[in-house]
């Protein structure tokens, strides 16, 4: 569904990606980690066609986002959802209106069906029904992220991209969010690709982990496989947990 092939990204003299390649199949929950400045978010923006890589090929559902004609790219845009780090909800609209935007723009459904669908999306994202009438500025951080998820899944996307879904959330809310993401994969058959720093998310729900370091893919596999690798950065990354917060 997502193919990344030899992507190179340079900002001036600084090389962020130096030949990044991987591909993601249907129905998996893939996590992307890497130190600060390794271009995780940049890679995500490149995959969804917001930013152009210096070289390399990126394909979503087999469509190259940078060379395909505009109608094809638009069709692809309807097949994935993206949740930005701070939600990026439209602040002039209520939460329900935010969720309704893609439905009104891209479907010919009747008003009452859209209302029911919006309510369903809010439910699926784990929001109480009365949250729909609120403005994004009236929501807590966790609720805002859930509202952003509700908007991202409004059009039944096949792939969902999440940028740091649990950053800034308390552990309880964050674990609830992990379960939500997992249930989207298991119950709705979505493919989820998330950028995260949250070790608990990685250990708890991720099927596959891709590690970005020094401009390349350093490791790619299940969490256990990645943790077993002999690399200084990976050792340090996971050592906090190994030193044994969780009593094992």
């Amino acid at each position: 569904m997502v193919e990344v092939e030899g992507v190179v990204t340079r900002f001036g003299a600084q090389t962020v990606h130096d030949g990044v390649s991987f591909s993601i199949g249907r129905g998996t929950l893939v996590g992307l980690i890497g130190g600060s400045g390794t271009g995780k978010s940049v890679l995500l923006r490149e995959i969804i066609g917001l930013q152009r890589p210096t070289a390399g090929r990126l394909r979503l559902f087999g469509t190259d986002m940078w060379s395909a004609p505009a109608p094809e790219v638009d069709a692809v845009r309807r097949r994935f959802g993206m949740m930005f780090q701070d939600g990026a909800l439209f602040s002039s609209l209520s939460v329900a209106q935010n969720v309704a935007v893609p439905l009104r723009e891209h479907t010919q459904l009747s008003g009452s069906t859209i209302d029911a669908l919006v309510a369903l999306r809010l439910q699926q994202a784990g929001l109480p029904p009365d949250a729909g009438a609120k403005r994004p500025s009236e929501l807590s951080g966790g609720m805002r992220k859930r509202a952003a998820i509700a908007r991202a899944i409004a059009l039944e996307p096949e792939v969902l991209f999440l940028d740091e879904p649990t950053s800034g959330l308390d552990p309880i809310t964050a674990r609830g969010f992990d379960r939500l993401v997992r249930s989207l994969v298991d119950d709705l058959g979505l493919t989820v690709f998330l950028v995260t720093h949250d070790l608990d998310t990685l250990l708890g729900v991720v099927d596959r982990l891709i590690v970005l370091a020094r401009g390349r893919v350093l490791a790619d596999g299940t969490v256990a496989q990645v943790m077993a690798l002999d690399d200084a950065w990976i050792r340090e990354y996971f050592c906090v947990r190994r030193m044994g917060g969780d009593g094992s």
Binding site: D115, V118, A119, L120, Q123, Q124, A133, D186
Partner: peptide, 18 residues
């Protein structure tokens, strides 16, 4: 699974009035 999930949400789905 999908149909069951939606059915379980249905009760409150019908009760949201702006």
């Amino acid at each position: 699974r999908i149909v069951d999930k939606v059915r379980s949400h249905l009760g409150s789905v019908l009760s949201v009035a702006p």
